[in-house]
């Protein structure tokens, strides 16, 4: 699923909802379609173990378990419905996301290097602003948590509407600012968190 962009994923889930025959709320515009939103769009190329999708069921007689079952029955095996629940918080409360970055190497030297880089006091990157200008920024203070385990890096970064740091910014900076050869990495989003570092629900 990592080659499916956010917009394509949206369209995909619309079809899943149609296949499930769960009565959902449709938009009332020129071109009615079920109204769904993802709490936090996922970048192309990432996998995820924690995605949240909002939609409104128009028939109260459906239990949450029933909805989960219906959706699961029409989802392909690589999409798992973990839970169907009433929303607890507004999406604006999203503050952080935790990622796992698994490097395709057994070389502990490489991991040590990237660890040293990520734990520097200051990591200056240049990021495109919405206006298209390049802006320099220090991401070191933005790293909320970071840990390493064999060839894996676990990192928690700001996410959501207020401030959003994509973990690839750190990787790009590492390759640009050191002379290390590129190593393939699988990036998986592990969870979406609120300001108190609780799982966003």
């Amino acid at each position: 699923m990592k080659f499916v962009s956010h917009l394509d994923m949206n369209r995909f889930m619309l079809r899943i909802i149609r296949k499930s025959s769960i009565p959902v709320w449709y938009t009332e515009g020129f071109n009615p379609h079920p109204y769904i939103t993802f709490a936090l769009p996922l970048s192309l190329g990432f996998e995820s173990e924690y995605e949240i999708m909002d939609f409104r069921v128009t028939d109260d007689s459906f239990s949450l378990d029933e909805i989960k079952e219906r959706l699961s029955s029409v989802c392909p095996e690589y999409i798992e419905i973990f839970k169907v629940a009433e929303p607890e918080k507004k999406t604006g409360k999203i503050a952080f996301a935790k990622y796992k970055i698994e490097f395709d190497t057994e070389n502990s030297l490489f991991i040590n290097k990237i660890e040293a880089f990520a734990k520097k006091e200051s990591i200056i990157i240049s990021k495109k602003t919405k206006k298209g200008k390049l802006k320099e920024m220090d991401i070191a203070p933005k790293i909320k948590e970071i840990s390493f385990e064999h060839n894996k890096m676990f990192i928690t970064l700001p996410a959501g509407g207020e401030d959003n740091i994509n973990p690839t910014l750190l990787l790009d900076a590492f390759y640009e600012q050191t002379d290390n050869d590129y190593v393939c990495a699988d990036i998986t989003r592990l969870s979406i968190l609120d300001g108190e570092m609780n799982e966003f629900k």
């Binding site: 619309l14 079809r15 899943i16 909802i17 149609r18 296949k19 379609h33 029409v74």
Partner: peptide
Amino acid sequence: ICENTGYD
């Protein structure tokens, strides 16, 4: 086809 694809 509609049932098996979810096309609208």
